[in-house]
Computed example of a mutant assay.
Amino acid sequence: MANPDLSANQTSTPEASRQDQGLFRNHAPVQREGGRKMLRIMWNMIFNKPRNTRPAAAIPVQSLTLEDLLVAPDHSVYRLGHSTLLLKMRGKFWITDPVFAERASPVQWAGPKRFHQPPISIDQLPPIEAVILSHNHYDHLDYQAVLKLAAKTNYFLTPLGVGDTLIKWGIDASKVRQYDWWQGAEIAGIRFVATPSQHFSGRGLFDSNSTLWASWVMIDGDTRIFFSGDSGYFDGFKRIGEQYGPFDLTLMETGAYNVEWPHVHMQPEETLQAHIDLKGRWLFPIHNGTFDLAMHAWHEPFDRILSLAWERSVAITTPQMGEAFNLMQPQRGSAWWLGVEGESEGLVQSA
């Protein structure tokens, strides 16, 4: 395993990741699904999918150009799809979990297919200071995207083990920085800390939990941003909030949930509580609107989290893919998904 860079602003706690027989594990025991349950889940995902798990029409996407990005103010955030976000801080660009593939799958002829094209291509992106990766699942780690980004990226920040995968793919080891939970570094004046999440890892049949998963804290002066990666709800959010909050913006997983896998993805009610635990100001729901990864309607995560945020008076933003959100002049965005499917159930207010 490549040596992580722990030289700057490292934080160590007793809750660093733990390994069991060489495999990473969550702090709280997470029940492993038995073979019979996994077969039932797979059967339902293949043969019992409701029709509304994919949009009936094209979803709106605001195209981006290099010129748009270069003139954008600092603390602009653009959602490019799923959990891929482009952030501008200190005049530089940073991207989370870049997935540009047509399918979130080990092959491009089968598997979950995109609902929309990215608002901008990798070729059109400006130089990237760092790629921030949460874990190695196919909807978060895209082999071709990593290779295409390599030439224009200075650093790849990863949880333990994921960086070794990048190096095997041909990424220059000098660009790779990998961290345990509660470890991090300062890059170009911005502090990054890998923080716990409750999830799992694996890209094949025989590598389950061989690499770590993480959320990320980003600190730019007085501005603090949290990126959840993938996670079930757990008490770690409160610990992160106590240690690094309050956060100006939380980029929070809100989608691909199901009662069959409650420990590794959050229901919208849990997403909202996690945001509160983190002492978040603005909630930006992600991990939705791009791939069909569960049994719920594609627009349900937006409907539910928006209604819940209204009920709890939580500031929430739901920009279109490619639409700018700026922390210095934050806006709520719009309920853009209503125009794709018509009026969604459960919404009691207009956006």
Rank of each mutant, 00 (worst) to 15 (best):
Q10D: 14
S12A: 13
T13M: 13
P14D: 13
Q19F: 01
N26E: 08
V30R: 11
Q31S: 09
E33Y: 12
G34V: 02
I41W: 12
I41L: 12
M42Y: 12
N44Q: 15
N44A: 13
N44W: 10
N52F: 12
R54C: 03
R54M: 05
I59F: 02
P60C: 11
S63Q: 14
L64Y: 06
D74C: 04
H75Y: 13
R79Q: 13
H82W: 14
T84F: 06
L86R: 03
L87V: 08
M89G: 01
W94A: 04
I95S: 04
E102G: 10
R103I: 12
A104L: 07
P106W: 09
Q108G: 08
G111Q: 05
F115Q: 02
P127H: 08
I132M: 13
A145Y: 00
K148C: 10
K148A: 15
A151L: 07
A151K: 14
K152M: 07
F156L: 13
L160A: 11
V162E: 14
G163P: 02
R177C: 14
R177T: 07
Q178E: 15
A185G: 12
I187Y: 12
A188P: 00
I190M: 09
F192W: 13
V193M: 13
V193E: 08
P196H: 03
P196R: 04
G202Q: 08
R203D: 03
R203M: 10
D207R: 09
S210I: 04
S215V: 03
W216Y: 05
W216M: 09
I219W: 02
D220M: 10
G221H: 10
G221C: 05
S228D: 09
Y233H: 10
F234D: 06
R239V: 09
P246D: 09
D248C: 06
T250Q: 00
Y257E: 10
V259I: 10
V264A: 02
V264P: 01
Q267W: 15
A274K: 02
A274E: 04
D277F: 05
W282I: 05
F284E: 08
L293V: 06
A294W: 08
H296N: 15
H299G: 01
E300T: 06
F302T: 02
R304V: 05
W310P: 00
T318M: 15
Q320D: 05
N326L: 03
A335D: 14
E341V: 05
E345L: 09
L347W: 09
